[in-house]
């Protein structure tokens, strides 16, 4: 597909090649110097069972494609998004992202509760790599999308959870992303806002944005995605048309519940 914005030729927007990642759960993540020293003295390894969060995962998302990712809690969906967003690197494998990436994630009051709505938007835009003057130019559109035109000069500590989330999403979808990650967050907005987000996601898709969509909302996966991916214990166990993959996921869950009964 040709990008509608600048006509760049079609190369995959996201390529995940044979990515694996392990986490060590437990006390070893961070700790006091004393723990580490005593481990060194006793020649022990870090405690805790390693968890294979991603196990040889490969994935290609073309521009203008929406790919849904489903699976149980702990199947590796969020880790996959974090690896694609380069928040955390894979242990092995390679991730290529072409074009600006933006995430619909809930940042909460992550910027600072004392900042106003406007200041938070400027900071969020800077983190996404946008110029402040570009963000200032889009401020009106962002406030309108979030439905917060009257609240942009209010410190965000007075915002409700929904208001804050709407503001964050508005910045993310207005950043002209070529790659958009959506992680199970639209549930915090009300129905009208969720519909507006879906509408905007479809617009971005039409412009050639590649979208990776993680959700437990299976009807949304079926309705929105071109393709779906089923993750279990860090592995891709199924991939194909959303209806088929969702059906496989439902069947696998039903079978497991029947067994445990």
């Amino acid at each position: 597909m040709i990008d509608q914005r600048d006509g760049t030729a079609s190369q995959p927007a996201i390529e995940v090649g044979n990515c694996s990642k392990r986490f060590v759960r437990g006390a070893a993540a961070y700790g006091s110097l004393r723990d580490t020293l005593s481990r060194l003295v006793r020649r022990e390894r870090a405690a805790g069972e390693p968890i294979q969060a991603l196990d040889d995962v490969s994935l290609v998302v073309e521009p203008g494609e929406i790919v849904g990712v489903i699976g149980d809690n702990g199947a590796g969906k969020s880790t996959l998004l974090k690896v694609v967003a380069r928040i955390t690197p894979p242990d092995t494998g390679r991730v290529t992202v072409r074009g600006r990436l933006s995430s619909l994630i809930e940042i909460g009051a992550g910027f600072h509760p004392e900042l106003t709505g406007r200041e938070s938007v400027l900071l969020h835009g800077s983190i996404l790599g946008l110029r402040r003057r570009d963000v200032r130019g889009g401020m009106g559109a962002i406030a309108a999308f979030a439905g917060l035109e009257g609240a942009m000069d209010t410190p965000v500590k007075f915002f409700s959870t929904g208001m804050y989330a709407r503001l964050g999403f508005a910045v993310a979808v207005h950043a002209d992303p070529r790659v958009l990650l959506v992680d199970e967050v639209l549930s915090v907005g009300d129905l009208a806002f969720r519909e507006a987000c879906y509408e905007r996601i479809r617009q971005l898709q039409a412009l050639g944005t590649a979208i990776l969509f993680v959700s437990h909302d299976l009807p949304a996966i079926e309705g929105l995605c071109d393709r779906a991916l089923l993750l279990a214990s860090g592995r891709v166990t199924d991939e194909g048309p959303p209806n088929a993959v969702v059906a496989a996921y439902r069947a696998a869950t039903a079978a497991r519940m029947a067994k445990s009964r």
Binding site: R94, V97, L130, A141, H174, D176, R178
Partner: peptide, 16 residues
């Protein structure tokens, strides 16, 4: 909204 400046939009590669 706005057009983003091109210099922040080139993408990246992450390798394990």
């Amino acid at each position: 909204g706005y057009r983003a400046s091109p210099d922040s939009a080139s993408g990246y590669v992450v390798e394990g």
